[in-house]
Design a protein around this nucleic acid. Sequence first.
DNA 1: ATGAAAGTGTAGCCTTGGCTACATTCTGCA
DNA 2: TGCAGAATGTAGCCAAGGCTACACTTTCAT
Lengths: 158, 158
Amino acid sequence: MPQEPAPTPAPDGAEANDKLLPAEPTQAKRFGKTRTAQSTALAEDYVELIADLLATGGEARPTDIARRLGVSHASAIKTIARLKREGLATARPYRGVFLTEAGEVLATRVKARHRLVVDLLRAVGVPREAAEQDAEGIEHHVSEITLAAFSAFLRRQG
Amino acid sequence: MPQEPAPTPAPDGAEANDKLLPAEPTQAKRFGKTRTAQSTALAEDYVELIADLLATGGEARPTDIARRLGVSHASAIKTIARLKREGLATARPYRGVFLTEAGEVLATRVKARHRLVVDLLRAVGVPREAAEQDAEGIEHHVSEITLAAFSAFLRRQG
DNA sequence: ATGAAAGTGTAGCCTTGGCTACATTCTGCA
DNA sequence: TGCAGAATGTAGCCAAGGCTACACTTTCAT
């Protein structure tokens, strides 16, 4: 959906995006950023889940991933292919999925961020269930600055 | 992108989604929900912005909307067409965009939610600029339960 | 050891939301 | 008043991320 902003014009001030993935050319101010975060979010979810599956069961199979994400296995496989293209994962036919260095790094950051968001939500009184659930969507939109503020708040709170 | 979950299977426990838009058949547990929220988010942004433009300048023109959202006017028009299809907005050629009753209602809720999210972020120490920015992405993923918790927290805080 | 079940992979289609290019309609000013 | 320039609208293309259907491997239990 977000198309590579078109090689042509490079519209206006591409202010740095402080999200987690490598850094893509951003073209718009507020909303635009929100918009582009999308594709990133999917990759982050996959990487996070793959790391989790590997840590837990020792292997990450497309079907498990699909089941956990609530999509068909075909969709999962397609996305895994993208992760491969982007250098976040490796996978050989019928042999499961693994993370590259970059994938590991991303997974670690995503996991830490997820934890932080859940903790913050809990700290302000959100019930556990809702906190876990909402964090899943929220985490992809939290900037480094906000993350730092969350962290500080939690320290302050004790 | 999220396709109507296919009339066919209606897989598993379609637990109620407490987001803002009407209510779509949800098929997956955690992530699935996050995923489907997407299309909703776009509509919410548009409606919020249109309400804002109407309140501020008295009119909402496609070009202004496009500029504010950082997309081409063609994309804006296409999305406006969707809003019309969904009964959230009305628009006659060259005559600007307006909100239907439903659109107004949605706009009001979205605006209140946005305010609440920003206030919460500010309250836990997120700088204004970052709060505004991140809220734009976060707001679409905050459930009613979490919203209530935010509200309570802010009251408690004073 | 073999055949059925489970897991994988591929192909092809759909919708959404981007974009550019081009056509049309308004509008305001000279 | 008439036309240039801005705003709108339309068409057509693209990629992402869904899905189903179908084909091919693996695995495992008999």
